[in-house]
């Protein structure tokens, strides 16, 4: 299999626009809502999402934060060395509707760690998951996305989805392997 573009720049823009409209459809003015990007790669999407939200729904009430899940991973001391990145959540998540944002949903383990990290900031009313790419047949934990950009049906764990966030040129690739 050769490397191919899964989502080009224009499609990425449309997906982010759709995400914003879906959020408005479900949560209105987003009062009592917080958008939280998962470090490191989810924040690229969550920042662009917030830009689009500010453009399409000025005066919305959504809070914004970024979350690092390093200390809650289940593979600490089992694989690579994991160094943390900063979390920025300057509000309590108590009773909020949280939309957790990441680029790719694969095994579900990153999201599990993210939810655990999130719970340290309070008890949210509900947590939703938004991902650009959902590799739905590769789950290792019972986790599902509430909002997804595209779904990849590949069952091969060797294939790799890589999202490149560049200013005005976002591209998502499906690669035959991680290297």
């Amino acid at each position: 299999m050769e490397a191919k573009i899964l989502i080009n720049n224009q499609q990425t823009e449309l997906i982010i626009r759709r995400f914003v409209l879906q959020l408005i459809e479900h949560h209105g003015n987003l009062e009592n809502c917080a958008i939280i990007g998962l470090q490191p790669r989810g924040v690229s999407l969550s920042r662009q999402l917030m830009d689009k939200l500010n453009e399409l729904k000025p005066g919305h009430q959504a809070k914004y934060g970024e979350l690092d899940n390093t200390f809650f991973r289940d593979d600490i001391r089992r694989g690579e060395i994991h160094l943390p990145r900063p979390s920025k959540i300057d509000f309590s998540t108590e009773n909020l509707n949280i939309v957790l944002v990441d680029d790719v949903l694969f095994t579900g383990r990153t999201i599990r760690a993210g939810i655990d990290a999130l719970m340290n900031f309070g008890r949210p009313a509900r947590v939703e998951l938004m991902v650009l790419v959902d590799r739905r047949y590769n789950r290792e934990l019972p986790i599902a996305a509430d909002y997804h950009g595209v779904v990849v049906d590949s069952r091969s764990t060797g294939e790799y989805v890589k999202v490149e966030w560049n200013p005005n040129n976002n591209q998502t690739w499906l690669l035959p392997n991680k290297g």
């Binding site: 200390f71 809650f72 979390s87 959540i89 340290n120 900031f121």
Partner: peptide
Amino acid sequence: QLLNSPVKKTPS
């Protein structure tokens, strides 16, 4: 930052 959040523990 973790020590200043409501739950001060990690399972790492």
